[in-house]
Structure formats: structure tokens, C-alpha cells
Simulated scan of single mutants.
Amino acid sequence: MVFDTHVHLNADQFKEDQEEVIQRAKDAGVTYMTVVGFDRKTIPLALQIAEKHEHIYAAVGWHPVDAIDMTEDDLQWLEELVEHPKVVALGEMGLDYHWDKSPVHVQKEVFRKQIRLAKRVNMPIIIHNREASEDIVDILREENAAEVGGVMHCFSSTPDIAQQCLDMNFYISLGGPVTFKNAKDPKEVAQMVPMDRLLIETDCPFLAPHPHRGKRNEPSYVTLVGEKIAELRGLSVEEVFTKTTDNAKRFFRL
């Protein structure tokens, strides 16, 4: 049993063959998935997929790139959605300094509001970080996000940042980049994170692992991530899959 902790099966890239993709994942041993919705369009789709499939769950949040669009009504909506039986986390939320659609101060405000919501409803959070590690760690610390804990999704920063996140009760999730030839940091992180704090994911349709790099990613490929971690740590593939699945169930409180 394998748990892909972060998928976007609600993306347009899967519109034509979503069910076939889910079946391929099952055939590859990927039993569990969490579909992440992050705006008005993708959240309802994430819920629909989770409602339809027993072992697929949903996360709901507001993406930092679209922070400029979030209203108080949207925040209220997220608070209502956490009551849904298949919603297991709030996110993805965080900071993204790569795209400039939403000003930094707006991103930070929306990020803080979602952390506070998570603390109110006692739900773990999923963090999106792109080129914003220091600010993210600072905000998580200032808002005492350790109280609910969370996961650094598709972690791509340094071992030092990983350690700071671990110290705040966070899990580290690795995806396709750990399989990339020149990806030094993800490989180091894969070796230093305690096995009971490690998750795996695809972030599909993005960041497909080697040898599918540059193509559409899908949940069945998460096994390649687990295999690379097993190789880096000198463990059996079964041990990595068992441990990361147990971790994911604990993190999502399943």
C-alpha cells in the first residue's frame, strides 16, 4: 500500500482520463491519495473525487499565487468545508515568490489567516513554498503553527530549513525532484529526515520523476519516488512504502 499525499487529479490535464489514471495508480499499489483544491474552481472538484472513491481524500486551501483573489467569504467557505467527512487538511497555503500575481504582503496576510483558521478548527496544514523558505519558517514560528503541525509539500529547500520545519512539528514530503540527477538538496534531505516524519507525493500533473521528467505526472509514478528514497537510505522499498503510508495516515488522522 502506497499513499500519494499530494495530487491534483482535479487539474484540467486529467479531464479526459481521470478514472484511468486512478486505476493505473491502484494497479501500481497506490491505494491512498489526497487531492488538493486551492481555489473556487479546484476545491469542489477535489471534493467530488474524494466523495466518489473510498481511499481518496481532499485538502482545501487557498494558493499563494491567487492570494489577491481571496475574500472573507472564501475564508468562511474554507471554515465550513473542514466539516466535510473527506477533508483531512487545510492547504495548500504558503508563499510563492516565483510568480508576481499576488503582492508579497497580501500572500503573507492570506497565509496567516489560513494558519489561524487551522488552529481554530484543529486541522493540519499543507505548505506551498517557492523561493520563500526564510519567510515561511518565520511565519510558521510567529503563528505557532506547531500547534496543529503540517507538511512541507514537495520539499525543495536545504537540509537546514528541513530541520527547522521538523523542529516545529512538521513532516517533510518529497516528490519527483528527489529522482533528478543533479538535485543535491532533495537527496540530502531524503537521507536526514527521520523515517517517521517522511511523506511521499507526486504533485501530479507537475514534476514527474525520472524517467518521465517533462511529461505529465500521475499518481502511479509515486512509486519511483519511494524507490529512490529506499536506494538513498539503504532500505527496502517495502519498508519505505509501509513507513510513509503509516506516516500519512497519522498525519491526516485516518
Rank of each mutant, 00 (worst) to 15 (best):
K184D: 14
K184A: 10
D185A: 15
P186H: 10
P186M: 10
P186V: 09
K187V: 05
K187T: 07
E188M: 15
V189D: 06
V189Q: 05
V189A: 13
V189F: 13
V189E: 05
A190Q: 11
A190S: 11
Q191I: 06
Q191K: 15
Q191Y: 12
M192I: 15
M192G: 13
V193A: 12
V193E: 07
D196L: 04
D196P: 12
R197V: 03
R197K: 15
L199N: 05
I200T: 04
I200G: 03
I200S: 04
E201L: 02
E201C: 02
E201Q: 02
E201S: 02
T202N: 00
D203G: 08
C204K: 09
C204N: 04
P205I: 03
F206C: 03
F206E: 00
L207A: 01
L207P: 01
L207T: 01
A208D: 04
A208P: 10
A208Y: 04
A208R: 02
A208F: 03
P209W: 08
P209Y: 07
H210I: 14
H210L: 13
P211Q: 14
H212L: 14
H212Y: 15
R213Y: 05
K215E: 09
K215G: 03
R216A: 01
N217G: 02
E218W: 06
E218I: 01
E218A: 02
P219F: 03
S220V: 06
S220W: 09
S220I: 05
Y221V: 00
V222R: 00
V222N: 01
V222Q: 01
T223A: 13
T223D: 06
L224S: 02
L224W: 11
V225T: 08
G226Q: 08
G226I: 02
G226C: 05
G226L: 03
I229P: 12
A230W: 03
A230K: 10
E231Y: 12
L232K: 10
L232D: 12
L232Y: 12
L232F: 11
R233S: 09
G234E: 13
L235A: 14
V237L: 15
E239Q: 14
E239Y: 11
T242Y: 07
T242H: 13
K243A: 12
K243S: 13
T244W: 04
N247T: 08
N247Y: 11
N247Q: 12
A248T: 07
K249H: 13
R250C: 07
F251K: 00
R253L: 10
